[in-house]
Simulated scan of single mutants.
Amino acid sequence: MTLFRDPTFLTWFLGITAVMYWVGMTALAGRRRVRHIQDMYEPGMRKTPGKLRRSLAGLLPVSESGMDRLEQELKRAGYYASFAAIEFLATRNTIVVGLALIGGTAAVLSDPTTSVPELIMIATVVFAALAYLVPRLILKIQSRARLGRIETGLPDALDMVRMCLTGGLPLRGALERVAQEVEFFHPDLAVELEVVRRHAEADTMPKALREFSRRLNTPDVNALATLVSQTERLGTHVAVAVTEFADSVRRQQRQRAEERASKTSIRMLFPVIFCLAPPVFILLLGPPVLQLKNFLKDAHGVDGVLNPETYSELPTNDSSPEN
């Protein structure tokens, strides 16, 4: 018991426990996401929003094209439920309308002889606009980050698919196996592969890949869907095509990384000019400017070389020739 009273041992013990807990929860995160996708296809797990949620979702009008873009962004971000758009709109509209009602009530109850009602209305409009725009912006950020993670893990998953195909597994079995293997390192990609496998079981693999391409709408996924569809239609071996495509995806990712690196040098030019150049100029020009200031001060002082009184006190040589 005296060992647990030692602060050093207690600190190390708590730190190691926290690290082990974090590793365990991270390992279970991928399995939970895959199970969530599996539960979505069970009839008993589907929950539809009530009339209140649907009414709140329809408070603010949304065009048909805007609704399609919202559903695509939700699927890109990992929200696959058919009612995810309704939940998103209902939550956002509730916040916006709630802020408007609270701001309007506060403006009515405030003193009309002062400028407080106008300030409350301006603040209400600003916060309502932020509540309307910020959730969509956060959704876009989530979808882009998730697409980046999927594109990063796609070449490794394709290599594993190729090994499963050369081992004799069909494409559906290979996708199921790969989804189980990569769920720890690439959980988002594992979820997408599970969705593709489920769609292939319900229909055909080319249609499932087309839905996969339409859902993510990225160049690598579009090319993969086209490649596998053409390979199955022509009857060629999928493993060879997948291997070549994985190499091309890695090459394209390396080229995109080099392109981003080259753009970074140009983007760093403005911070260098506005942040690093002033200190450099101060270090280079500061001492000469101080020396010049001291020189001018001394030169204009008493007996200075630039003081006019110094030359007025000097004797003049106006000696005339003697007669």
Rank of each mutant, 00 (worst) to 15 (best):
S262R: 13
S63G: 15
L224F: 13
V178G: 02
Q255P: 07
I122G: 11
S319W: 14
E244V: 15
A129M: 09
V302L: 14
I122K: 12
L165Q: 03
M40S: 11
L158R: 01
R260A: 11
V195G: 03
S213N: 05
T218Q: 09
L89E: 08
V195Y: 05
F13Q: 10
V191T: 09
A57V: 08
D303C: 06
A123M: 06
M45K: 02
L59D: 05
L193Q: 05
G44Q: 14
F83T: 00
E244D: 10
G58I: 00
N217D: 15
V228D: 00
R214L: 12
L189V: 03
V126I: 15
L171H: 01
M45R: 12
D159R: 12
I16H: 01
G167I: 00
L14V: 06
R146Q: 14
V191D: 01
Y41V: 07
L60K: 08
G168D: 14
L306F: 09
R267N: 14
H300P: 00
K207E: 11
L139Q: 06
A90E: 01
P155R: 00
N307H: 09
V221H: 00
Y21H: 01
E151H: 08
N93C: 02
T26A: 15
Y41Q: 00
T166W: 12
E118Q: 08
R149G: 02
E322H: 14
F127M: 15
D159M: 13
R215C: 01
E232M: 08
N294I: 10
E309A: 02
L269R: 12
F127Q: 08
L209W: 01
R92Q: 11
G15N: 09
G50V: 08
A29S: 10
G30E: 02
T114M: 09
E183L: 05
E194T: 08
A100N: 06
T264A: 15
V178L: 00
L133K: 11
V97E: 03
Y132W: 13
A145Q: 08
A174L: 10
S115C: 07
T113A: 12
G104D: 00
L227C: 15
P271K: 13
D203E: 05
A129D: 05
M160V: 03
L290Q: 10
P206T: 00
D68Q: 15
L59F: 12
R267T: 15
S110T: 01
